[in-house]
Design a protein around this nucleic acid. Structure first.
Lengths: 233, 233
DNA sequence: CGGTACGTTGAGTCATATCAACCATAGTGG
DNA sequence: CCACTATGGTTGATATGACTCAACGTACCG
């Protein structure tokens, strides 16, 4: 973890225009800039753990973070990823509960840490921001609900195909189908909710059938419609 | 569906003090009362279906509603239940997406239908309400995340035990362990995410081991700690 | 050069789904 | 009033998807 003394101002942050902060007044933005701490975190470092009382939340400036829960036997279940423009930790801040997820850097990232107080003030005093944040949460909730249905009803093969589609949508703009996120087989299995060996077998099946191309952790989607068909979407 | 001409005023609604509306100003409450429509819905009736564009949301005055998603092959996955004091449909209103769940009455209920506009105004103009609603959404999101982990990692037996615990917590105050909600075996299987036959077999196993007592759809919890142990919680 | 983490493959096992038959109950219509 | 039908519940037999275990290959790193 390394503190940056030349913090990027939020004004010039290229993520802001797509983020939750896009409608803030100048004063509000200024308030954030005065109070935020910007840090670089290396791959593998933990931002916060399950059970932590959060004193603030984070805005992702660059990099990728995996957000997971630890199950009874210690197996991690990846809930989602955060990428530039996303915020993490806000859920626990708002509901004032200990964090129910652990967040770990999987691609070196720059994070802006923002105190809880600022979030509360924004929600209370800026109706548009409150609505924006509500929309975000509601969207996440909808996705979580859909994932419950999927995991409960679909086979591992269908789920893997679906996850590949989602990863492609989220992480491979203009890269011709190469997933711009590097995951171990075990991490893939922790998204899908299955055993590592199952993922390996299914990936090589998808490869042999021409749906994907494999090169270590690089995965290239060759036949997206085909995968969609497998995934029933 | 039957309209009640003598709507209960929100002032005197006994649910309000525990609900999202507990901190509203008098004027805001009055605004709701002027615009709401109160209706009685019989068991089995659908309040809204997946894909519907919502023009408002509902506050549950009495009864129980099941909220589910329909999977690829038509099998329903029950996401949660709504009981007196809960609100339904607000997620789609806020995120301005078509409803992603279907809601069906499982115990005759009285619902207050409230226009979307009122919800937006409250979020925008009443910071405390916005915060309260955010808290609710964040709590639901946390629960959804936990359920993803459970469904992905626990066995059917563990999940059924856990669901029975949850149903007991939610639906059997002062009824000595008798679940105050009547569900078919199929509905139980649609919560747990398994086949009806599996539920039947497991319920009779739990019964034979003295964890529960069965009488048609009436389920009585005899050994809650035992069930918690099975569920790993 | 050995160590550690990750990836792969095969074989065996088990939990759970599926299929099929049957019973109980309640509501329906002639 | 009784056959008729629909719905829900139960049980047993069978099939299979997915997990587990074990062995081994591979690559990177200090």
């Amino acid at each position: 973890m390394q503190e940056n003394f030349f913090d990027l101002s939020c004004d010039s942050c290229t993520n802001r225009t797509h983020s939750i902060f896009r409608h803030l007044a100048e004063g509000e933005l200024h308030e954030i800039m005065l109070n935020k701490i910007t840090e670089t975190h290396k791959r593998g470092s933990i931002i916060y753990r399950e059970g932590t009382r959060m004193k603030g939340f984070c805005c992702v400036q660059s990099g990728i973070i995996k957000i997971y829960q630890t199950g009874f036997d210690g197996k991690e279940q990846i809930i989602r990823f955060a990428k530039p423009g996303d915020i993490i930790g806000y859920r626990s801040v708002i509901s004032n509960e200990p964090a129910c997820t652990t967040t770990e850097v999987i691609k070196e990232c720059v994070l802006c840490h923002i105190p809880a107080k600022i979030l509360f003030n924004l929600v209370k005093n800026n109706g548009d921001f409150a609505l924006e944040l509500m929309k975000l949460t509601c969207k996440e909730l909808g996705e979580a609900n859909s994932y419950i249905t999927d995991i409960a009803q679909k086979t591992v093969k269908e789920r893997l195909a679906e996850i590949l589609i989602h990863l492609d949508d989220e992480f491979s703009e203009d890269s011709q189908g190469i997933l711009n996120i590097s995951l171990t087989r075990e991490e893939l299995s922790n998204i899908v909710g299955t055993a590592t060996e199952s993922i390996i077998r299914l990936l090589s099946e998808f490869k042999s059938r021409g749906y994907i191309e494999l090169n270590g952790r690089k995965i290239k989607i060759l036949d997206k419609p085909g995968l969609k068909h497998i995934a029933n979407i």
